Amino acid sequence: MKPAARTTYRREHIGFVFQSGNLLPALTAIDQLRLMNHLNRRKTGGRDAEQLLAEVGMAGKARRRPHQLSGGERQRVGIARALIGNPSLLLVDEPTAALDRARSHEVVELLARETEHAGVATVMVTHDTDVLQHCGRVVEMIDGKLSG
């Protein structure tokens, strides 16, 4: 694929959940999702931003900006943002790195539930073995080799 085609493919088919959230500081939680729908040029077919925020437990904080949210809340918005365009693949990088144990389990349970509900294949990279019980399949990388 040419670079422009790769970019379009990623935008339309792959959702990303980043370790640090990577939310835009000037945008509210709801606007983070609306921006993704706008970038995807979706008038219809994308998920409803308000409904999706409610599904991840953030309906009451839709008008807050990232600095007004806890780490777990930012991750929930990041998950919703990744799912808004109905991706077929979700790539998740260390979603629990900055969270306490209870919030880590909540976030990974949410990921498992939402991706199953949406029918999204999800690949999560984590060092947090506590949350592996929420995963359908676990593959370890040891010395550069996959096992499991």
Rank of each mutant, 00 (worst) to 15 (best):
R10F: 13
T44P: 06
G144F: 08
D128V: 02
G57Q: 06
P3Q: 10
R42Q: 14
T129E: 15
R63I: 05
A5D: 15
H38N: 10
G71L: 01
L89C: 00
V139K: 08
L99F: 04
G71N: 07
T7G: 09
T28D: 10
I84W: 03
A5N: 11
F16H: 02
A54L: 03
E12H: 12
I30F: 03
N40A: 15
Q133C: 11
M1C: 11
A59W: 07
Q68A: 15
L132Y: 06
R81Y: 05
L90P: 01
A4V: 04
T7V: 11
E73Q: 15
R34E: 12
T28R: 10
L33Q: 10
G78S: 07
L23D: 07
N37R: 15
T115A: 09
L89W: 13
Y9G: 01
G46L: 00
C135Y: 07
A62G: 06
L132V: 05
S88F: 08
A26Q: 13
R103H: 09
E114T: 06
Q51F: 06
Q68N: 11
G136D: 12
T129G: 06
V108K: 05
M1N: 12
I142V: 15
L23K: 04
P3H: 03
R137T: 10
L91A: 00
K2M: 09
D100W: 03
D100A: 07
T28N: 07
A5F: 07
I142D: 00
S88W: 05
Q19G: 10
P66E: 09
E140T: 11
D48Y: 08
L52P: 06
L110N: 09
S20W: 06
D93R: 02
S88P: 00
K145A: 13
R42F: 08
Q19S: 07
L132T: 10
L27D: 03
V107E: 04
E116D: 14
C135K: 11
R64Y: 12
D100E: 04
Q32Y: 09
T96F: 08
M36T: 05
T44D: 14
Q133K: 14
I79H: 02
Q133S: 15
I84D: 04
